[in-house]
């Protein structure tokens, strides 16, 4: 079983506004509510691709109930710890005309030491029948910055591969522990070990450095519609054009879900990257987060431009 860990889930509220600007007052042309947080998104998208997962982390209050309810209806296995407070709400404003997105993220509920200990005991229990752990997103208040390290260490002790999709201090700490896959979320990370993540050359240098720390697969986004991949087979760039794109929201997780499926089916590195990117593109073609189905993803494969950089 694949286990996804979302320590700080959210309700994602996506508002589509014809032309958004700060200081204005707008009528929303569409609103989309869905449970969110990177791990949960990966679980939902893998389900759409026909892969079973178990989602775990912390949930709280009414928002937490909502998240659990949606996962339950999607028949996804859950093992969340319910805590005091309220699961956060993240607001995204999609400007239809300018094609830009604005995001507002809450902090999330406070997690006590007892609750962390309880979570760890659930985690260790589920690891006994886990084939891959996906760790994603920010940490809620109360959870130590190096918590992902511990989760990776516990998985590694049982030779279970790990994938981390995070940013900032929690990601940097986790990289020391050598996860199998790491996706660098550049929205919240401007540089790595002093290398500014702005040009392609710098990005290549950064992903190679991360790779040299023992991370088998490093993924970092490049511009808006591309990603750089560093594996033991080389460094690759995959991109798609912006035609038909409505919202990139959730595309990072669609990419991860696609790569995981590719890994399970033992696809070649190139095919795996292209499939993952096609999943990311499919996710971006509509406001609803997630993908329609596998066929829809496969139809988009010709739109992915793949290139070996090194």
């Amino acid at each position: 079983m694949i286990v996804t860990v979302t320590l700080n889930p959210a309700i994602d509220e996506e508002y589509v506004v014809p032309e958004f600007r700060p200081g204005g007052w707008f009528r929303v042309s569409r609103v989309q509510r869905s449970p969110g947080g990177k791990g949960i998104n990966v679980s939902l998208i893998l389900k759409q691709l026909g892969v079973e997962t178990a989602a775990m982390g912390f949930l709280a209050g009414f928002s937490g109930e909502y998240v659990r309810d949606v996962l339950r209806k999607a028949q996804i296995t859950t093992n969340f710890l319910h805590v005091r407070g309220e699961t956060r709400t993240n607001v995204y404003i999609v400007d239809e005309v300018g094609k830009v997105e604005t995001g507002l993220a809450e902090l999330g509920p406070y997690i006590s030491e007892d609750e962390i200990a309880r979570f760890l005991s659930n985690y260790e229990r589920i690891l006994k029948r886990t084939e891959l752990v996906v760790l994603g997103g920010s940490l809620p208040p109360g959870v130590p910055q190096d918590f992902y390290c511990e989760l990776i260490r516990l998985a590694k002790q049982r030779e279970i591969p790990t994938l981390i999709d995070a940013a900032g201090a929690p990601l940097l700490a986790a990289l020391d522990e050598g996860p199998t896959y790491a996706k660098v979320d550049q929205r919240f990370m401007a540089n790595y070990e002093g290398v500014a993540l702005n040009s392609l050359d710098n990005l290549i240098e950064a992903v190679q450095r991360v790779h040299s720390h023992g991370v088998e697969w490093v993924i970092a986004s490049y511009r808006t519609y591309g990603n750089v991949f560093c594996t033991h087979e080389g460094v690759f760039l995959a991109e798609f054009d912006r035609k038909g794109i409505v919202s990139m929201f959730g595309s990072g997780e669609a990419l991860i879900a696609g790569l995981i499926l590719g890994g399970r089916e033992r696809m070649e590195t190139k095919d795996r990257i292209v499939f993952g990117m096609a999943a990311a593109l499919e996710n971006a073609l509509h406001v609803e987060k997630g993908i329609r189905d596998r066929e829809a993803v496969e139809r988009l494969i010709p739109r992915i431009r793949f290139e070996r950089l090194l």
């Binding site: 178990a54 659990r68 339950r72 028949q75 996804i76 296995t77 859950t78 093992n79 969340f80 659930n122 589920i126």
Partner: peptide, 8 residues
Amino acid sequence: EVMDRDLT
């Protein structure tokens, strides 16, 4: 098809 897949 009806069960709650919750492991709490």
